[in-house]
Amino acid sequence: MKLAVVTAGLSVPSSTRLLADRLAAATVAAAGSPVSVSVVELRDIALDVTKNLLTGFPSPALRSAIETVTGADALIAVTPVFTAGYSGLFKSFFDVLDADSLVGKPVLLGATGGTERHSLVLDYQLRPLFGYLKADPVATGVYAASSDWGSGEGALQRRIEKAGGELASLAEGRVGDSGAPEFVPFEQLLAE
């Protein structure tokens, strides 16, 4: 399985990248088959994204990032929260993708912010964005506030592991590149 991780953190080190890495590790741990992970740091291609929005022509670096995301079997997308919403860089990257490039792709949504008050960004901004792109977000999104890091990480880690397990399960339930769910006969379901 090919897993793409898009992270829109701006600082180094970044709590957004830390969350993205932990979500990827949980997905790899839950997967029943080998997983190759490719990380797209939007900070590194921010100018390329902007130039593409203005000209319509992607640079080689942006083209590579787009191919990484669209060619993956599953996606983890993590953004910092600014002014109660996802970052402009995060949104701009997904704006340059072809509208049908994520159809049926399993996606794990994540966000980081300074306060728990912004946790609804997962359901009120990220899910609609990926719904528009016709992706298939897993049920559990992971929001990490500043207070989640450090001594109180038990609950955060449980959410990370649950979400990673859901993404691995959804991605592994797909057949080849078709994006179609694996068919399980009803008799087999009853036998389990």
Results as ranks from 00 to 15, higher is better:
54 L>M: 14
38 S>L: 15
121 V>H: 00
184 V>W: 07
131 G>R: 03
183 F>S: 07
151 S>R: 13
66 I>P: 02
101 S>C: 03
185 P>L: 00
123 D>N: 11
127 R>Y: 02
134 K>H: 12
8 A>R: 01
112 T>V: 03
11 S>A: 13
188 Q>E: 15
180 A>G: 11
9 G>D: 04
146 S>F: 13
121 V>Y: 02
177 D>S: 12
16 T>C: 03
109 L>H: 08
164 G>C: 07
111 A>E: 01
111 A>I: 08
15 S>H: 12
99 A>W: 12
76 I>G: 00
192 E>I: 11
139 A>K: 07
2 K>C: 10
101 S>W: 13
25 A>L: 10
191 A>M: 12
66 I>M: 07
107 V>E: 09
113 G>F: 05
37 V>T: 09
76 I>W: 00
157 Q>I: 15
5 V>P: 01
50 T>Q: 06
113 G>K: 00
105 K>S: 03
192 E>A: 08
64 S>E: 15
66 I>F: 01
73 D>V: 11
61 A>Q: 10
11 S>D: 15
166 E>F: 13
88 G>F: 04
95 D>N: 05
87 S>K: 07
11 S>C: 10
155 A>V: 01
155 A>P: 00
64 S>G: 14
27 T>F: 02
166 E>Y: 14
179 G>D: 11
12 V>S: 13
20 A>W: 02
99 A>D: 13
117 R>S: 10
91 K>C: 04
89 L>H: 09
49 V>I: 14
125 Q>V: 08
23 L>S: 02
117 R>N: 07
162 K>P: 15
65 A>E: 01
183 F>D: 09
138 V>T: 03
79 T>D: 00
146 S>I: 14
18 L>T: 12
50 T>H: 06
49 V>P: 03
130 F>M: 03
56 G>W: 04
187 E>V: 11
107 V>F: 07
154 G>D: 12
135 A>T: 13
170 L>Q: 02
44 D>R: 12
123 D>C: 04
159 R>Y: 11
98 D>S: 13
71 G>Q: 08
66 I>D: 03
49 V>K: 01
38 S>Q: 06
161 E>T: 10
22 R>M: 06
52 N>V: 05
110 G>A: 03
130 F>I: 00
172 E>P: 05
102 L>T: 01
130 F>N: 01
53 L>W: 10
145 A>G: 06
173 G>R: 02
136 D>L: 15
82 F>I: 14
